[in-house]
Amino acid sequence: MSEILTKSRARNVFYGGSLFFVVVFVAMTAHSHRYIVKTSTAGMELTDAVRLGKHVWERHSCINCHTLHGEGAYFAPEVGNVMTRWGVLDDAEGAYEMLNGWMEAQPSGVEGRRQMPHFEITEEEMRGLAEFLRWADQTDTQNWPPNDAG
């Protein structure tokens, strides 16, 4: 093997092969970008409210307790399908009411239960957050999660 695979051959295989895989990856990513915009997330308009909701989601670092499409921390429930679980996926007002009611009741203060902090969020922001979660929920995620439990 040592005659066939010299150091310089190994190096050339490394550079050439890596470049090949980078090109393939970039091409597939470009296609995926298009697919996301045109197909998988096209079911609901990306409104200003959804944008605002995403910023609210980020500003309070919700991802470090919850998962969203299965990514994040594993300390609190999945929220990528929370609007389905609550039965308000197609009901903007109902989604806001449910989310607002839930978040107003936090923290529960119950001994031995995980505590969700209380967040100071304006009504506009809360509506945005509800829209953002509805928007995320309607994304085509290849039928994940397997059931409503998330």
Binding site: S18, F21, V22, V24, F25, M28, H31, S32, Y35, I36, S40, T41, H69, G70, E71, T139, D140, T141, Q142, W144, P145
Partner: peptide, 15 residues
């Protein structure tokens, strides 16, 4: 590099 695909199963990326 293409192994990145195992994160692209359920986030809205193609099948």
């Amino acid at each position: 590099i293409l192994g990145t695909g195992h994160h692209f199963f359920w986030i809205g990326t193609p099948g």
